[in-house]
Amino acid sequence: MIPVRCYTCGKVISEVWDEYKERIKRESPAKVMDDLGIRRYCCRRMFLSHEELIDEMAPYG
């Protein structure tokens, strides 16, 4: 699960995660983040470095 807020500055970033995930299939992440108002590099790394692992855990739940 994507963290609700940016670890560093506290901006709520999870709200646009679904849209980001969908749009990076076609566009460059940098452009999508600019569009979504994720400007600071602390917030941008939250998206770039996030890996959705919850589905891998599901069989063992």
Binding site: M1, V4, V12, S14, V16, D18, D55, P59
Partner: peptide, 14 residues
């Protein structure tokens, strides 16, 4: 809530 689309948890049926 100030935002509608904050994911809280994914509930999975297997």
């Amino acid at each position: 809530p100030a935002f509608d689309n904050i994911p809280i948890v994914k509930l999975i049926s297997t």
